[in-house]
Design a binder for these strands. Structure first.
Lengths: 108, 108
DNA sequence: AATATATGCAACTTTTTGGTTGCGCAATAT
DNA sequence: ATATTGCGCAACCAAAAAGTTGCATATATT
């Protein structure tokens, strides 16, 4: 199963879950209560998030508290870096389009 | 069809396309040549990226040049903001888990 | 000990995706 | 004018994802 963090955050429910457990450890039931969904559905999302290594687990009695392993989110930020460099250097998008086309015409 | 940028970047091929056309406007055929895939497959990815308003189109003759509308990528960065605040303030992830659980025990 | 609760897991169903094939249209080339 | 090229679009297909149901296990309550 090749899952990455980008797939994890593709689903809106999972994004909401991530926000929810970013600062508080919660049980699957507690999470499910926040949304219009069943515990089992949440449980599946948790499983996926777990496969992406996005979660910390803490078992207390029969309850399992999940919390976001926040460092993992940095991977998305790192991927964004390459685009940040562009949008910080670029004066205007339209200008750039024309420049690119022009350089293509000139065979550069 | 409700598509958002998070779904757009969920697919590895689409992420590669985004990087490819971040600084250069390219035609679907030119994009397809870079990968082990057909023009039609790329065409479908482009359609999705277009629905997410991630692309600029420039038609020249019978060719259509696509380029990443880089500002759109900022939306991902904005979403990340909420996590950045946490990972910048937090000393250690493990400490935090314990703190959260403790406050829960105390009914705070 | 018996019952209730919290959870994970596996099987199944429905929906969504990623890809291919084939078509038609517009623009270039011969 | 005819053939070729670049493209989008719709139909189809296989694979994956999201959700539901049911069951097994471990802990808590009585």
């Amino acid at each position: 199963m090749k899952r990455d963090i980008f797939q994890a955050i593709a689903d809106p429910t999972r994004r909401a879950i991530l926000v929810l457990i970013a600062s508080n450890a919660l049980t699957p039931n507690a999470i499910a209560e926040q949304f219009n969904t069943t515990r089992q559905a949440v449980s599946k999302h948790i499983k996926i998030l777990n496969e992406c290594e996005l979660l910390d687990e803490t078992k207390i009695g029969r309850e399992i508290y999940y919390q976001l392993k926040i460092d993992k989110m940095k991977e998305v930020d790192q991927w964004l870096e390459q685009f940040k460099q562009i949008w910080e250097n670029r004066f205007s998008q339209l200008d750039q389009v024309l420049i690119n086309l022009k350089s293509k015409e000139n065979g550069i």
